[in-house]
Structure formats: C-alpha cells, structure tokens
C-alpha cells in the first residue's frame, strides 16, 4: 500500500468519513476535529516511524490527504541519509 492509501485507510476506519477527495481540507470539510488531528499525528508517527516537531503541526503540512502524504514522504527522505 502506498503512503496515501495507508493514511486514507486510517482516516476512513477511524473517523468514519468515506467520501472525501485527496485535496479536501480536513478542517473546512469538517472531517477531522482537533482530537482527531492529534490521533492522525500519532498514527503517522507510529506507522511511518517518523517524528514530527511541534512547529510542523501546521495546515501546510497536514490539512489534506495530499499534504499529509507529501509531508510524510519528505520526512522519510530526510531521515534516510542519516540512517544510512
């Protein structure tokens, strides 16, 4: 499963929202509230083995499926050189 699909599966299973587009804003569509956003952050950290800084918890990184997937990809690439 791709990063995007894994995140989508988590959102659908957890928040019971099925019909939403990849670029829909979680906030403006009312898909995820603040507690839910914290759960999403915890899922992303645990499932992809990355650590999000508090200053990275902003709409530019997390407010749509596309943004979250792109952000996770960026974080994983940052991590790889250090690991290898």
């Amino acid at each position: 499963m791709s990063i995007r699909e894994r995140i989508r599966t988590f959102i659908v299973d957890t928040f019971f929202v099925d019909e939403f587009g990849d670029d829909d804003s979680f906030l403006r569509k009312g898909l995820i509230d603040s507690t839910g956003m914290m759960e999403l952050v915890a899922f992303v950290e645990q499932d992809f083995g990355i650590k999000l800084e508090d200053k990275e918890l902003v709409p530019e990184n997390l407010d749509s499926l596309t943004r979250v997937a792109a952000f996770v990809e960026r974080k994983q690439q940052q991590r790889l050189p250090q690991a290898g």
């Binding site: 906030l27 403006r28 509230d33 603040s34 507690t35 956003m37 914290m38 952050v41 508090d54 918890l57 902003v58 709409p59 997390l62 407010d63």
Partner: peptide, 18 residues
C-alpha cells in the same frame, strides 16, 4: 496554539479551527 495530549503537544490553531 492548541496544546493537547499527555504530555501535551503544541499544534497551530489554524490547523484545527476556523
């Protein structure tokens, strides 16, 4: 900022509230 959780993490209020 919205501080939430145990221990609390800070997230931008723009992310979760209009």
């Amino acid at each position: 900022t919205l501080a939430m959780g145990n221990p609390a993490r800070n997230m931008s209020l723009e992310l979760v509230a209009r």
